[in-house]
């Protein structure tokens, strides 16, 4: 099992465990340890096989078949069709745009907030809490609430615009995807801020002091110290962010129903559409697997780059 060698699960940084010291020779103590470990693991293995890998395997089989009832094997047809289907390609591109927009947005705002709060502003605990509240709120509430706020005729936002003499905006028609990105940034920035705050607090004060003595200005210090030393955090935000934003479903489902037209038909929403609206379950399964493969490859590439730049 080469994976064991390529994935050092117990890091070199941790103190060597007693089992390690004894090497790979199977002593009675080590045998007991192995048995204990497996006993502790039984529930988890049963659970993940039954609730993740078995369904995943079933879905994989479905992706090689057609239709809802009496599925016929169709080989790779569903995959080939999806790869050349303009609807799927469009939805994939929309998802990339959504992921890029919401990641860039929440990284910029999250970093800005973290830098400001890290100065020891008074009341920063209160501010931090306020900023984190949207992150703890259910997407079902967030979707309905923004749907109401953005409503062109009865929404508070347009009412406010009218009140100050500005024309009302039809946000969900003129910039639907950007609106969803905005809602995501609103919800996720607090979380990103927290990650950056943790990253900032791990930068030793002495590094700043030293460069200050060298006469470096604020901008130089930000560029030379803060940005590079935060790079691992940024990298981590990007990786986790890509995984979660590529899987966004709740917002188009609740706020726009994928519309207007196909403007917000994010990939997972499209999978939902194919499954339940278009009744094309084999096709939907193939699409879901293509997305899974894409996310895995993307994470893999990110990992390679990250490792080369020594970010992980």
């Amino acid at each position: 099992m080469s994976l064991v060698d390529t994935v050092p699960v117990v890091d070199e940084g941790t103190p060597p465990s007693p089992t390690r010291r004894q090497g790979r020779r199977v002593t009675p103590l080590r045998r007991k340890q192995i048995i204990t470990a497996y006993l502790f693991l039984i529930p988890a293995v049963v659970f993940f096989v039954a609730m993740f890998f078995y369904p995943l395997f079933n879905e994989l089989l479905t992706s090689f078949t057609s239709g809802l009832t009496d599925p016929v094997p169709v080989g790779f047809d569903n995959y080939l069709r999806a790869l050349s289907d303009p609807v799927v390609i469009h939805s994939f591109l929309v998802t990339l745009e959504y992921a890029a927009g919401s990641l860039v947005g929440s990284i910029i705002i999250g970093l800005l907030l973290a830098l400001m709060l890290n100065q020891g502003l008074r009341g920063r605990v209160v501010l931090r809490t306020m900023i984190l509240v949207p992150y703890m709120t259910s997407i079902a509430i967030v979707g309905l609430l923004w749907r109401n706020i953005l409503d062109p005729s009865v929404g508070i936002l347009n009412t406010a615009l009218h009140a100050v003499g500005l024309p009302g905006q039809e946000w969900l028609n003129t910039a639907p995807l950007q609106t969803l990105i905005g809602i995501t940034v609103w919800q996720e920035s607090g979380y990103v801020m927290m990650l950056f705050l943790a990253g900032l607090q791990a930068i030793p004060e002495e590094v700043y002091e030293a460069s200050k003595i060298d006469g470096a200005g604020v901008w130089t210090r930000f560029r030379r110290i803060t940005v590079p030393l935060l790079a691992p955090t940024t990298f981590f935000v990007l990786l986790v962010g890509v995984i979660s934003s590529m899987q966004q479903f709740g917002l188009p489902y609740i706020v726009t129903n994928g519309g207007p037209g196909d403007a917000t038909s994010l990939f997972v929403f499209q999978v939902y559409q194919e499954t339940f609206t278009n009744q094309d379950i084999g096709y939907a399964s193939a699409m879901a697997f293509l997305l899974l493969i894409f996310i895995l490859i993307l994470s893999f590439i990110q990992m390679r780059i990250g490792r080369r730049k020594d970010l992980v």
Binding site: V7, P204, S299, M303
Partner: peptide
């Protein structure tokens, strides 16, 4: 070098998730 704890946890998570997931799929 910096923030060893976070760095280590991240490394093992990312490696595991990335490589493992791919081979799994």
């Amino acid at each position: 070098m910096n923030q060893p704890n976070n760095g280590l946890s991240r490394r093992s998570l990312l490696k595991a998730a990335g490589i493992g997931g791919l081979s799994l799929a």
